[in-house]
Design a protein around this nucleic acid. Sequence first.
DNA 1: TTAGAATTTGCATATAATTGCAATTGCAGA
DNA 2: TCTGCAATTGCAATTATATGCAAATTCTAA
Lengths: 140, 140
Amino acid sequence: MSRMTTARALIYETLETTQEHMTAYQVFDAVKPRLPSLNMSTVYRSLEYLTHEGLISVADVGEGMPIYEAVSNTHHHLVCEGCKKILIVEHEQVKGFFEKISQEYDFTIHTNHLILFGLCEKCRRAKENQSEELPKSLHP
Amino acid sequence: MSRMTTARALIYETLETTQEHMTAYQVFDAVKPRLPSLNMSTVYRSLEYLTHEGLISVADVGEGMPIYEAVSNTHHHLVCEGCKKILIVEHEQVKGFFEKISQEYDFTIHTNHLILFGLCEKCRRAKENQSEELPKSLHP
DNA sequence: TTAGAATTTGCATATAATTGCAATTGCAGA
DNA sequence: TCTGCAATTGCAATTATATGCAAATTCTAA
């Protein structure tokens, strides 16, 4: 049977109260003062556990390390590869798609945090201008 | 300026002809005989480069290492957390959703390989039965 | 309340992935 | 075809993550 231990509880509480996404190391730094014996492997294992329990979500934002956050208000992210800006997508916008896939493939989707990479409007425009205006020899 | 070097070309060619997804290590093993000087860091960097160029796609299947594949026929994956089975989702099924998000958020989506985790029909049913039929004391 | 079984943790170590830097390679222009 | 410079590679660390195992902790049932 699985147990909600001190370490797991503190880690979850931290993510829950912060309401921000954090890397494994940030979680470690935040919890360590209250649980000095805490070890990085416990952090990794606890995050994996909490994810599996559906209490938190992981997402790999591509640059750097994966981020974890409490799943209270389910949402998703658009990550701009140009300026690294992150846009929030409400689950409402995704729900229908998930339901369609679920039905079509008879598959219950657990994933609750989507990360889509691409270009925000500003960076897209910047790129278009660049391609059109620069002389060929200056292309990157 | 970016260059299509021997290493990058061989790595791409391997993924392209294989038409299978491979881990970084599998790519290394496949290319090494034809390019003995090849080094793992080159593999990682080349895979990153090819991904960025849109020639291949990465996907983190959760268990184990991320997998790479040539993007010829764009598709997506459903990964069953019960039996680890992988279902293929045609891009046709996803296209509409991407377009909607693109418009709504004025964001050009580059992501071309979605991985959704969950339970296939068989495992879902197995789990339902388990919850209903087992006496409380035998629960995991 | 406590004993005992089972899960979880810390530690040490292994594996995966990333990075700085010098040497090498590829390409545009002569 | 050759040259020079910028991009890429290999190597040797470094950092991030995962894992085996013994010790510690948690929970159930008596």
